[in-house]
């Protein structure tokens, strides 16, 4: 039995402290994005490119992957191997769908003439969403590793803390997207006003 002064497992506390640090990382990216919004001096500009219906779909996919994640955790906790495998895989797959959407979006923008060094929008947009995408990628690898452990019968209820910590990370990545979706995509309608 693990004993800690607060009763909170060390791994879980580590993840929360790490998430606190990540708040500052994404905070800096968002602050830069906002500081530079509307300051590009050549096009293409954000309002010509951002595709709200498309990104709404991938946003919804990421939200649903969060749901799969909590279901995976409770399956692992109650010792349900079938549910564990299924929901872990679904979480990872939905994450992959989101990433595929991002690859498609980036390609589309590049095709429209928005190279990385084109203007201020391109730099801030690609780095901010790219950082988030990198976090999703790490999360997918992590989830697939857990899924592989589950497939080999090595993810019983006694290891639920591993899934819980991965879940915290995954939900945080989702939360960051909730903010980015609003700030980058939906509020682009307000920047011209």
């Amino acid at each position: 039995m693990e004993r800690t002064s607060t009763g909170v497992p060390n791994e879980k506390m580590l993840m929360w402290a790490f998430i606190g640090s990540e708040c500052m990382l994404f905070g800096s990216l968002i602050a830069t994005y906002l500081a530079y919004r509307g300051r590009s001096i050549v096009g293409p500009y954000e309002e010509e490119l951002l595709n709200i219906p498309f990104i709404t779909v991938t946003t919804f996919v990421l939200l649903m992957s969060s749901l799969m994640m909590v279901l995976a955790l409770s399956a692992v906790q109650r010792g349900d191997p079938r549910g564990s495998k299924l929901f872990l895989l679904l979480t990872a797959l939905l994450g992959l769908v989101f990433l595929a959407g991002q690859v498609f979006e980036f390609n589309h923008f590049a095709h429209e003439g928005l190279g990385l060094g084109r203007n201020l929008f391109s730099g801030t947009f690609f780095l901010t969403t790219g950082f988030h995408g990198a976090h999703v990628t790490v999360g997918v690898i992590w989830l697939l590793t857990l899924w592989a452990m589950a497939m080999r019968g090595r993810l019983g209820p006694e290891k639920s803390l591993k899934v819980e910590v991965a879940g915290l990370y995954w939900h945080f990545v989702d939360v960051v997207w909730i903010v980015l979706f609003t700030v980058i995509y939906l509020m682009s309608g307000a920047s011209g006003a």
Partner: peptide, 21 residues
Amino acid sequence: MASEMAHGAEAGGLETAMTHG
């Protein structure tokens, strides 16, 4: 809930009287 694997307190066996679980 805490597992053998999840023995993050690698200073294991720390007899902390307070509040486990």
